[in-house]
Amino acid sequence: MDKWKNPKLVLVSVNEIDLQNKEKEKRAQELLTANKELVFQNDEKEKRAQELIVANHELVLQNIENEKRAAALTLANADLLRQNAEIKELTLALEAAKQELETAYLEKQRQALVLQAANQELESFSYSVSHDLRAPLRAINGFTEILLEEYIEKLGEDAQYLLGEIIANSKKMGQLIDNLLDFSRLSKQQISFARVDLDLLVRSVTDQLCRLEPEREIQFEFDCPDAGFGDRNMLRQVLVNLVSNALKYTSKKQKTRIQIACHREENNCIFSIRDNGAGFDMMYYDKLFGVFQRLHSSNEFEGTGVGLAIVQKIIAKHGGKVWAQAQVNEGACFYFSLPFSS
């Protein structure tokens, strides 16, 4: 049977179709919405994927960085190890150096004791020299003088001359002992620093020394505007020795000219004393300031050879220097420097 031939049936069918159509349309609508949703989700996923790619990239970069860091750390670690080893080595070296210092210190202490003993020995030596060497001299001198005084009528001229020689030589030996002692005493003498008016000191010393030779015509020139800084008594000794040297070595000249000057040079006061006397040969300059060293015979000029050694010792104690220039028969010039602050 053909249903389309039955109107009732046809109606039903049309309705159904209509319903179905509507259903389909609804479905299509739903699918469309679902499709839109999917498109959106796809977009979203793609975005996410993009993000993941970026993040991945980032991670790769970070990994590289980390690897680099790890390598650097490994290097630093090796460095640290090396440094540690080095420190250990240095510690050992320091320990050794410390040991060495301790040994050196002990050695120094031992040497100080030896020096102290030597010093003590020297001191008792000089004490003994000053007492024991002088006593027999006094006897030689004393008994010879008594002989000369009390038996003069019985003695011939020659005998008197011989006794005079004994007396003169014993006196000279006494002088030598005194000078030697003065020199050795200087070493232990303490300096008491003060401001010293050099002009005043120079004038007082030259006055004092000139009074000993009133018959001589001496031309002095002074130019000492600066003050020195040092031990007044010691500096006086220096000036006495230098001025009396100048007087001694000009004693054979007709006219004596002595120029004394001082000037400031940086932190030093430079003092000079120039004479027109016998001078000396610069070839023997290195002996000039030595103890008991002389550049003239005692027949020519009297002396014990201690004066300049004392000058040098005193100036050295003050932290200064002594030097000289000379020309035979033309004169000599002696200099010393005195630091202003010691």
């Binding site: 002088r134 006094r138 001198n141 003088e145």
Partner: peptide, 9 residues
């Protein structure tokens, strides 16, 4: 201090 020369001594 005992002088060296007898005259002074």
């Amino acid at each position: 201090v005992k002088p060296l020369g007898f005259a002074n001594f």
